[in-house]
Design a protein around this nucleic acid. Structure first.
Length: 168
DNA sequence: GCCAACGTTGGC
DNA sequence: GCCAACGTTGGC
């Protein structure tokens, strides 16, 4: 079992979209390194769903790989912004996996939160100029982000509870 | 909207 | 194969 981080702009496709759709083919990745990581993915691998170009940017939830990489259909579609004229059905260039919704965090674990955790300093997404939209994550880092999400969910529940008390 | 980082393209 | 020009990503 491996662990990954996949970036999506929530204006384009957010964790809420994945929750509603249940699964999605991760089309549109046009970077060779990111493509190769998707080819490495196995069914059941877990994914940190990251919101980029968002306020705040950060991990919004968890997904898992539900289908192995297949040719990305958008590369053959002349009307798609992801169309690649060099790709043919016989020789596809771009591949993508299907991912399934697992969970949406109560609160986004922001990039600032991640940076603030001493134990995550060597996480790939925190490195300067890390633009890769699909990247591997170490298990210890994955587990820690999940713990941070659980802790932040508890705190948010406590805040709500004490807020209710004050109103009584 | 700015801009640093970095990938890709194409002339040579 | 080098490298300048250009495009994209994505945080701020």
């Amino acid at each position: 079992m491996k662990y990954w981080l996949m970036k999506s702009e929530p204006d384009v496709f957010s964790i809420d979209n994945l929750k509603k759709d249940k699964t999605t083919w991760w089309e549109g990745v046009r970077n060779y390194q990111a493509r190769n990581f998707m080819k490495d993915m196995q069914v059941g691998d877990e994914v940190l769903f990251y919101h980029s170009n968002a306020e705040p940017p950060g991990v919004a939830g968890i997904a898992k790989v539900s289908k192995l990489a297949e040719p990305d259909a958008a590369q053959f579609d002349k009307k798609s912004e992801y169309h690649d004229p060099k790709a043919t059905k016989e020789k596809p260039i771009w591949f993508c996996v299907q991912v399934a919704f697992v969970e949406k965090f109560d609160e986004v674990i922001s990039l600032a939160d991640l940076r603030g955790n001493d134990k995550l300093q060597d996480m790939l997404v925190l490195q300067k100029g890390s633009r890769l939209s699909v990247q591997p994550v170490e298990k210890k880092h994955f587990d820690l982000v999940k713990k941070m999400a659980a802790a932040s969910a508890r705190e948010s529940a406590e805040r709500k509870a004490s807020g209710l008390k004050l109103k009584q």
